[in-house]
Each structure stands twice: as structure tokens, then as C-alpha cells.
Design a protein around this nucleic acid. Structure first.
Length: 872
RNA sequence: GCCGGGAUGGCGGAAUCGGUAGACGCAGCGGAUUCAAAAUCCGCCGCUGGUAACAGUGUGGGGGUUCGAGUCCCCCUCCCGGCACCA
């Protein structure tokens, strides 16, 4: 055995050996129970970042652990290959997005292999390949024919200078990121998935996901946002015609307090009023500026303008003024809202600002309504009883809503309605590097889906976008085609799909990536649902909701048999690091990578020039803040095992992980010590492990089943060993707390180092401990574990150690002794002692005597196995 | 703004069901080894007072429940994630 721990050597050897025997190839035909372990696939941005290392190490630990426990494990990997960054790189460097993407994939695949992940590479896929997106296009045409996909107008961010639709990310302070032009809202036609049709099932299905974190389920439930309310109309007459302004409210009980209505800038009523009102027209134009992002809408200053029009209150008959409000969105509900300033925070602010009347219609007994205390009237208190509401006075929330809905229905002016906050999913993107939408526009036949036999609609890969518009529009060979129905000249749709579509079903395609006869084959149901899904918490809502939705779409197409795609979900925290920057005179910040910064006399300075930089706080590793730590340098210096050990040890998986170079050093030190401990033991000759229920046969020792006499120190170590086996299995399998699993093995190794003696029994206990410790670490640091186990048990395959129950038995245990809840000492009692015996022992103890001063205790609390608390 | 999460030594974190706060690791300090250094090994290490034994105090802030609260309840502050075209 090599005396020195040489990571690069043993890692290369282990990886070559795994590849040679195809160790991680998942069998489609196995007797063993399946375990499908999936990590969210990466966007091929260039090179792996620490978030990837963390994500895939978590998945690999679980995959390897389950393989050691006898499961038929599948851990696949692929590439979320379409997306905006490829186009940005194209604009910056003049490289086609395809070439850039595939080069990145090659580099990142090599990095993943260097980390030693137990991935079945035979199932690798990239979403930008026609063999993949072909089936996405096929499903699109099926759903289009079923009406699950439809077309409607939707609002986008429009850059008037670049003549391009911008992603929210590309809008900075209301301006286009490249042009700096003020962004405008613009309505364009888009294709939508009718996800709202599945809203109820997506909501109720959360109850069948006990393996998901509560917080993710809560976020999804709030996102779907089911609410029962009332949709009703304010009638009005215009140009001699009777018309209606429809609104939706969850607070119909406050309908008698309506003092105005507010409509979106794009609302037909606003458009009409603006025709002979230049000031209003100007205001509407102003409203149309800025981004469409909800966060921007919600935080901007609430502004409005009177249209001069009024509508009739459906119950009181009063005239109600109609305002245009910049906070009312055309795409939400009806594009119009009723306003009750007394009982809605936003309406209140608006009314205060523009001097609109405020009318209290809800009261809480014993409390006086006052404008100063208006905030008090939200939450539970808002659900008081009706006042100043005529016939509805005295009714509570539910009764008032029922009565008001009934009266509106009787007049044909409204009805109860279940409303979801969830909106249909718009998937059209005016971008090149995505999956083409398989639609052909024919002047005669309209929107015609591309027939299955003509799929895939292949995206040309030699295009270089320039940042203005979609380059596909300039490709006559792509655009011009014949209508599949009538054969006349037609135009191909040039919008591509939202990349969330590709990531909504890739998990299913891994079961049968080579199948070219359809989207999925029978192997999908063999492997699905995914047993464990791992990915960042930032995907808690959108990606995970879309994937659940897609699973139900595929189920309803008869492609999968299950209702939900992911049985267990682990949402890992972010990897964060310090940020450093310098600010120029014009306020522009230049960010420096932590690797280029060092501390000199407590001041952060740039290594290159020694001048100070400003410390900008600890944030998610990102390109924009230039605080990403390149895992490659770490692997080169310490090896993959150290990188894996550190990322698993530094924080529990669900919390954010703060990067630290010093911690890496500690992880490496532990592996060196482990290597040395095994080396020293092996130098003395390997022996059979201490007898336990399944004595492992070792050449020369035979079936040595005679129990050997064992001293107290070795017995104590064996107790700790088997407690550790119990704990580590529980930490990995149930708790998914790898940091404490590692800490427990470290403690065990520290205890082993203190075990003296070179007799046969002690050596066999040492052998047992080392075998188990190496096996327990194998899922986390597989290369070194492989090498060490081969020295400890030549020829044997790594196996998870079994717990020896008999080693756990204790005769005497220590309890803590509290007086008035404060720790004052310990007592030793027999492990089997009952409450009375424990109490007697406690009262007889020196510490108890000291604090009781001869007086009887007021109360004694005995928690067997834990403590005694004496109240004096 | 709305929804979700977090805050524990100098640092990362542990305390799994309300029961020894600070496991494990990093940094630091002291010692051994060495010509010297690196590496390695041993010891100390929340704060305040004390030579020490020990005492007091301590889990973002304020209040509450309990024999007992980092953990449960109410209020507050700050930080982070998501907000539908970043992935």
C-alpha cells in the first residue's frame, strides 16, 4: 500500500475502473427495487460552478448510498441547452449559439466525470437536439388540437430602439439593458398552455406529496392562489348602448363601500375616454412605460387619473367614477377592479392621494373605525360584520357574500366564482435559440399545426443573432413553407418555446432517451416517478409547478401512469461568497473575484495592485457580482474527494453554503489522516473484523465465530461504532443531513485514534471500525473509499455495514441533574432503573443535598434516560 | 408590495420529539518534533469576574407559556430566495 495519499492517482484509477466495468449503468431489467435519483440538469453556461458541485454531490451521495443498500439505481445527466445566455454570448463574440453550447457541454461533461459522479452516461441528452425537441413539438400539436394550447394577446417588454422583446432580466430600472431606451409594454399574440384547467388538481395534489418540503408546498399553494369570490358588473350606457364593466372581488361583503372603480390603461373604457381627453391619453401612454414584472408593478408609485366616466353601482344605483390606475393589470382577471378605500390598503392609499371618498361598511364590535388606524382593519379584524350597508347590516363575511351574490345573480349582474391567482402559461418567445413552435400560418386555413410526419421542425444551427429581433425572421429557407392543409404558400411560426417547456419533461425521457418511435415508451413507467429529485430552492415554484403540470398532460395522453413526477424533493440552498468591488466616479461598479482579493492588515486589497477594494457583502455566486469560485482549481489542487467532502460538510443541504478556502484545507486534512490510519493498520497485517452477526469471511481466518474476550475500551469503541452506523444511515437516508453524518465518522475516527493496544482482539476491533468507517464514507468520498477498502478487504465489494444490536447495550447510564431548571451535576444509574429509583438516586446525590439544605423538594421531574429536575 | 425562508462563539455549523447550548471542523493561542520552516502530533479555546474551585451571563430585539425554551405562542428588526421572458 502506498504510504502517501495521492488523490489524483487514486481518483484516475477509480474512475477508469468504474468506466471499464460500466459500474453505474442502470439496468432496465433488474430484480432489485429501482431507485431513480435525479438532480436538476445544468444550463451549459461554460463551466461548472459551486452550485452544480453541491447539487450533484448531494444526488451522488444518495445514489451511491442506495446502490450500497441493494437498489437498482438510475442517476442520469443531461443539458438544459436552449436559453438566453447562448444568444448573449453570440452577440458578444459572434459565435453561433449552437457551437458555443456544444463546446460548453463537452467541457462541463469532462468536469462532471472528474468529480466521480455515479452517472449513467448512456442516457445523456441535450434539449437542443432534434431527437429530443421533436417530441415536445409532437406533444404541442396534440395539445393544440385538444385546445389545451391556445392563442391570445399578451403584454411583453418592448425595446423601441433594438426593436426587440426583452426578458424581465434585460430590463434595468425601466430601460433596455443594451440600448438604454425606456422600455414599453406591448401586446403581441402568443401561445398559452391552459394550466388553469389543472389548477385544482395541481393544488390538491400537493397533499399527496409527503416527501416534499412544507415550504415548497406552501409556496406553490399560494402561487395557485385559489379564492372564492364574486364576479359582477357595473352597468353603464355609452352611445345609446347598454354595456357592463365587469370586476372580480374576494371581498363582496364590502361592495356597499365602493366609491370608485379602477381600470387598466389598456382597458377599452380607458381607450375610449382618452379619445377626447389629451391629458388622459398622455397618462395612459405613461402607464404603458416600464417593465411588466410583477415586482416592479407592485413597488412602483400608485398613480391614477379620472376618466370622467361613471358606471352604476349594481345594488345602490349610485354613480361611481371610473379611474385609470397604473397598478391595474389588463392580464389579471377582468382588467378592472372595484375600490373600497375603507377596507383595502391599496385602495385606501389611492383614495387618500386623490381625495376620493372613504366609506366604512365593516365594523368590529367595541372598536371605533378611524382612518388613522386603518391598518388595524385588515386580517382577522377585517372580517367583522356589515355596517352602513342597508339590508346587509349585521351579516358576517360568509353570510354577506352569500346574500350579495344572490342579489346580484337575481339581477343578472353577477355570480359566485372560483378564481385562481395562477394564470395560463404563455410559452411564445421571440428568440432564436429555442425549440421552434410547430405551427404554420396560412392565409386560408389559419394556424395549422405541423403534421407528425413532418416533425421535427429543425432549428438551423448556423445562425448568429445580433440582438435586434428574432433572426429566424430573416431566414427565408426557414420561414417559407407550404400549408399542410391546402398546399398554398404559407409562413412558419418563428417564435420558439419558453425553455421551461424542455425542462418540464426531461426526467421522463431519461427512461428511454434512445426511443425514436414516440415521446416515451414502456420504460418510463418502469422508472417513474422519480424517487428523489434534488435542485435549488429558486425553482420551488415555476419549474417544479410546470413539471407537475406536464406530468399530468403526459398522463392524460396515456404516456405515463402516475399523477406526480417527483416523490421526494430536496431543495438545496445556494452557494454564496463575499463580493468585492470598486466604484467609478460615474457610479459604475467593477466587481472583483474573491480569488483575486486578499486581506492585508485586515483590509481587503486586490492582489494585482495592492489597492483596497470595497467589501460588498455575501451573496449568491453569480456572474454579475463576479464572486463565483471555480471548482476546477479546487479539484486540481486537492482532488474531487476533498471538494465533495467539503461541500457536504460545510452546511446542511437545505441551507445556503458560505464558501471558505480554509474549510477545504480541513476536509483534505481529514482524508490524509484517514489514509494514514488505514496505512498504519494495514502495515501490521489485515485481520478478520471483530465477530458480529455476519462475520465477513477473510482468507486464512476461516469461519471464526468464537466470541473473543474484549476489554472495556474496545467495548466502548464498538458501542460508539455501531451507534455511528445507526446514525449515519439515518442521517443520509431519512434526514439528508450529510454534515452531521460526516461529523459522526470524524468523532469515531478520533475515538479510534485513542484506542491503545496491539493484541488480536483490539486489532480486530480496529479492523471492524476501519472497514465500517471507510464504507460509511464511500458515498461521499468514493475514490479514496474504493482504494482503502481494497487494502482492508482485498477483492471484496464495498458493502454498507450492519448494526450489531448487542454492541449497543449499556449497563449504566448518566443522567443530568437540574435544580430549578439549572444544571447542577450528574448521577449514574442502572440503565433499567425506574422513575422511583432515579428520583431516590437524585435526591441522595451530593448536588441535591447542597441545594435542598435539608428541606423537602417542592416537585421532582424525572425524564428517564435524560434528566432529573428538582424544584426547591 | 406580496409569498416563502433565515438569524446560535472570531468563522462554518451541532443540539433529530420542549430536556447538558456550542458536537464536528476552521481560525487563534500554548507546547512537542525540527538546525529552521512546512507538515504532523498533544493541549487550551462563548463572554464577564476569579490563581482556581466556582459563580454569573449567553442562541437578532421585546414580551409570554412551562419545572425547564435555541426549539412553542405574540410583536418587532435585519438578511436572503421567488414574483410568471434568467435558468
Amino acid at each position: 500500500m502506498q504510504e502517501k495519499y495521492l488523490p489524483s492517482e487514486i481518483e484516475r484509477a477509480a474512475q477508469a475502473q468504474w468506466a471499464a466495468r460500466q459500474a453505474y449503468r442502470a439496468s432496465d431489467a433488474s430484480e432489485r427495487p429501482k431507485y431513480y435519483c435525479l438532480s436538476m440538469f445544468p444550463y451549459p453556461s461554460g463551466k461548472l460552478h459551486m452550485g452544480h458541485v453541491r447539487n450533484y454531490t448531494i444526488g451522488d451521495v444518495l445514489a451511491r448510498y442506495h446502490a450500497m443498500r441493494g437498489f437498482n439505481v438510475m442517476q442520469p445527466m443531461g443539458w438544459d441547452a436552449f436559453g438566453l445566455p447562448a444568444e448573449n454570448a453570440a452577440i458578444a463574440n459572434g459565435v453561433p449559439p449552437a457551437a458555443w453550447t456544444y463546446a460548453n457541454i463537452d467541457h462541463m461533461r469532462a468536469q462532471l466525470k472528474a468529480l466521480g459522479f455515479a452517472i449513467d452516461w448512456s442516457r445523456e441528452l441535450a434539449t437542443s437536439k432534434p431527437g429530443y425537441y421533436r417530441w415536445e413539438q409532437w406533444l404541442f400539436t396534440r395539445l393544440f388540437e385538444k385546445g389545451v394550447i391556445y392563442k391570445k394577446m399578451a403584454t411583453v417588454n418592448w425595446d423601441p430602439v433594438d426593436a426587440t422583446v426583452l426578458a424581465n432580466e434585460q430590463v434595468i430600472d425601466g430601460r433596455g439593458w443594451r440600448s438604454g431606451a425606456l422600455v414599453e409594454k406591448r401586446d403581441i399574440p402568443m401561445y398559452f398552455f391552459r394550466i388553469t384547467q389543472y389548477a385544482d388538481e395541481l393544488l390538491s395534489g400537493l397533499d399527496n406529496l409527503p416527501g416534499w418540503p412544507e415550504r415548497v408546498k406552501t409556496m406553490q399553494a399560494n402561487w395557485i392562489g385559489k379564492s372564492v369570490g364574486v364576479r359582477f358588473a357595473f352597468p353603464y350606457t355609452r352611445d345609446g348602448k347598454d354595456e357592463q364593466l365587469w370586476v372580480f372581488t374576494t371581498r363582496a361583503d364590502t361592495i356597499m363601500g365602493v366609491t370608485f372603480c379602477a381600470v387598466a390603461a389598456e382597458h377599452p373604457l380607458a381607450t375610449r375616454a382618452a379619445q377626447d381627453n389629451p391629458a388622459l391619453a398622455a397618462f395612459i401612454n405613461e402607464c404603458k412605460q416600464g417593465s411588466v414584472a410583477e415586482a416592479d408593478m407592485a413597488t412602483m408609485e400608485k398613480k391614477g387619473m379620472d376618466t370622467g366616466l361613471t358606471v352604476t353601482h349594481p345594488l345602490t344605483g349610485e354613480q361611481v367614477p371610473v379611474w385609470v390606475g397604473n397598478y391595474v393589470l389588463m392580464s389579471y382577471g377582468e382588467g378592472a377592479v372595484m375600490a373600497v378605500p375603507a377596507h383595502d390598503e391599496r385602495d385606501f392609499g389611492f383614495a387618500q392621494k386623490y381625495g376620493l371618498p372613504i366609506k366604512q361598511v365593516i365594523g368590529v364590535e367595541g372598536e371605533t373605525f378611524s382612518l388613522d388606524a386603518w391598518q388595524e382593519w385588515y386580517g382577522d379584524k377585517a372580517r367583522g360584520r356589515c355596517v352602513n350597508s342597508g339590508k346587509y347590516d349585521g351579516l358576517d363575511y360568509a353570510a354577506a357574500v352569500d346574500a350579495i351574490a344572490a342579489d346580484l345573480a337575481a339581477k343578472g349582474m353577477g355570480e359566485k366564482k372560483t378564481q385562481f391567482r395562477l394564470r395560463d402559461w404563455g410559452i411564445s418567445r421571440q428568440r432564436y435559440w429555442g425549440c421552434p413552435i410547430p405551427i404554420i400560418h396560412c392565409d386560408r386555413c389559419g394556424d395549422v399545426p405541423v403534421p407528425a410526419e413532418h416533425l421535427p421542425v429543425v432549428l438551423p444551427e448556423d445562425v448568429v443573432p445580433d440582438g435586434s429581433g428574432n433572426p429566424l425572421n430573416k431566414r427565408a429557407d426557414f420561414v417559407n413553407c407550404a400549408c399542410p392543409q391546402c398546399g398554398s404558400a404559407a409562413r412558419r411560426e418563428t417564435d420558439t418555446m419558453d425553455t421551461f417547456v424542455e425542462s418540464s419533461w426531461y426526467y421522463a425521457r431519461y427512461a428511454c432517451p434512445d426511443f425514436d418511435g414516440g415521446m416515451l415508451d414502456a420504460r418510463a413507467n418502469q422508472w417513474l416517478p422519480v424517487d428523489q429529485y434534488i435542485g435549488g430552492i429558486e425553482h420551488a415554484i415555476l419549474h417544479l409547478l410546470y413539471a407537475r403540470f406536464f406530468h399530468k398532460l403526459m398522463r392524460d395522453e396515456g404516456l405515463v401512469a402516475s399523477d406526480e413526477p417527483f416523490v421526494n424533493l430536496l431543495t438545496q440552498g445556494m452557494v454564496i461568497a463575499d463580493t468585492y468591488y470598486r466604484e467609478a466616479a460615474d457610479g459604475k461598479k467593477t466587481w472583483f473575484n474573491p480569488a483575486d482579493v486578499e486581506l492585508r492588515d485586515g483590509v481587503a486589497v486586490l492582489k494585482s495592485d495592492g489597492q483596497p477594494v470595497t467589501v460588498g457583502g455575501t451573496e449568491k455566486m453569480s456572474k454579475s457580482k463576479n464572486n463565483g469560485v471555480d471548482p476546477q482549481a479546487l479539484i486540481d489542487q486537492y482532488g474531487a474527494d476533498t471538494a465533495r467532502l467539503f461541500t457536504m460538510f460545510a452546511a446542511p443541504p437545505e441551507q445556503s453554503l458560505e464558501w471558505s478556502d480554509a474549510g477545504v484545507e480541513g476536509a483534505h486534512r481529514f482524508l490524509k489522516r484517514l489514509w494514514k490510519t488505514v496505512y498504519e493498520h494495514v502495515q501490521g497485517g489485515v485481520v478478520a473484523a471483530f465477530p458480529h452477526p455476519n462475520p465477513p469471511p477473510l482468507a486464512g481466518e476461516g469461519a471464526n465465530a468464537e466470541p473473543k474476550p474484549i476489554n472495556d475500551a474496545a467495548k466502548a469503541l464498538r458501542r460508539q461504532l455501531h451507534q455511528t452506523i445507526q446514525k449515519v444511515g439515518d442521517d443520509i437516508e431519512r434526514r439528508k443531513q450529510f454534515n452531521t453524518a460526516i461529523a459522526a465518522v470524524m468523532e469515531l475516527m478520533n475515538a479510534l485514534a485513542r484506542l491503545d493496544g496491539d493484541d488480536d482482539v483490539t486489532r480486530s476491533v480496529r479492523q471492524e471500525t476501519l472497514e465500517a468507517a471507510v464504507a460509511m464514507l464511500a458515498p461521499i468520498v468514493p475514490h479514496i473509499a474504493e482504494a482503502l477498502y481494497a487494502e482492508l478487504r482485498p477483492g471484496a465489494a464495498l458493502a454498507w455495514p450492519a448494526v450489531d444490536e448487542s454492541a449497543l447495550v449499556q449497563d449504566e447510564i448518566e443522567l443530568m441533574l437540574q435544580v430549578n431548571g439549572k444544571l447542577r451535576g450528574q448521577i449514574r444509574v442502572a440503565a433499567a432503573a425506574d422513575k422511583a429509583a432515579i428520583e431516590a438516586a437524585a435526591l441522595a446525590s451530593e448536588a441535591a443535598q447542597k441545594y435542598l439544605e435539608g428541606k423537602p423538594p417542592k416537585k421532582v421531574v424525572v425524564v428517564p434516560g435524560r434528566l432529573v429536575n428538582i424544584v426547591v
